[in-house]
């Protein structure tokens, strides 16, 4: 497969929560081949490094990709200055391993924490009513994408740390309840590392396949510079895997937390 890098037209930009922006970009050549779990590597103009952002929706027919990101620093602030009609410099799709889709799964649980929620949406699109989408946020002003999950037909469960919306507490509370109600075939998760670790442990205890999407500070995004390392076990050996190329999606059993 060849990599694609170039400038693509932004069709839509929406501010969907405090400092969180939702972009749709016209990029038919990328939309045709992008897979759930992969990411786009965006260049804020004038910055030395690109920013890896998860893909939130792939529409091959319309030739569009959608992604959602939070302004966290100067680079993402620069990206957030771009508006509909502007061009954005993307290297995409990147990510050597996206989510492994099992078409036959009868029930899956999607666990998204904060800005780790967007990559769960393509999975909700695939699994529809077979999916339970559990999302956790710090507070009500950070909540995103709940209507999108409902639209896909997923059972949608919301948690906030401060209880300002939905269940008060962490995503692990409804996760355990849903597992007890009916054991899922797969758990997919993306979010802060402590959340992923907790989800992975619950999956392990219940003997459920668990796929986690990891984040790490990144350089090239294509596996050449080796900066985005993460400790993992492969073939019984401890390795420093690279999130961009060996992931970003890992089997939770491979990850050394």
């Amino acid at each position: 497969m060849r990599y694609t890098q170039g400038e693509y037209r932004i069709l839509n930009k929406t501010a969907i929560a405090k400092q969180i922006y939702d972009y749709t970009v016209l990029c038919p050549d990328i939309a045709r081949i992008a897979q759930p779990g992969q990411f786009v590597h965006l260049l804020p103009k004038g910055f030395p490094l690109r920013r890896p952002i998860s893909i939130c929706d792939i529409d091959a027919e319309k030739g569009t990709l959608r992604f959602v990101f939070e302004v966290r620093g100067e680079g993402t602030a620069e990206l957030a200055r771009l508006n509909a009609g502007d061009m954005i410099d993307m290297l995409a799709p990147v990510g050597g391993r996206g989510f492994k889709i099992n078409e036959n799964a009868k029930r899956v649980i999607l666990v998204g924490g904060g800005i780790g929620t967007p990559p769960m949406l393509p999975l909700a699109k695939i699994y529809g009513e077979r999916a339970v989408a559990i999302s956790g946020f710090r507070c009500s002003s950070m909540v995103i994408l709940q209507d999108d999950f409902k639209e896909m037909g997923a059972k949608t469960i919301l948690c906030t740390n401060d209880g300002s919306m939905g269940i008060k507490g962490f995503v692990t509370i409804p996760l355990i309840e849903e597992i007890e109600a009916e054991k899922p075939d797969i758990i997919f998760a993306c979010g802060p590392r402590p959340m992923l670790k907790a989800v992975a442990e619950i999956a392990m205890e219940n003997d459920i396949e668990c796929q986690v999407s990891l984040e790490e500070r990144m350089g090239c995004g294509v596996g050449a510079c080796l900066v985005c390392s993460c400790k993992a076990i492969r073939n019984g050996q401890e390795i420093h895997a690279h999130v961009c190329q060996d992931g970003p999606v890992f089997n939770a059993k491979e990850v050394i937390w």
Binding site: F47, P48, L49, G75, E216, R217, M218, G219, C225, L226, V227, C228, S229, C230, K231, E238, I239, H240
Partner: peptide
């Protein structure tokens, strides 16, 4: 194996 992550940081123009 190399060093532990994070292994990269952006700086002004570098």
């Amino acid at each position: 194996l190399g060093n532990l992550a994070p292994r990269i940081a952006e700086t002004p123009s570098g």
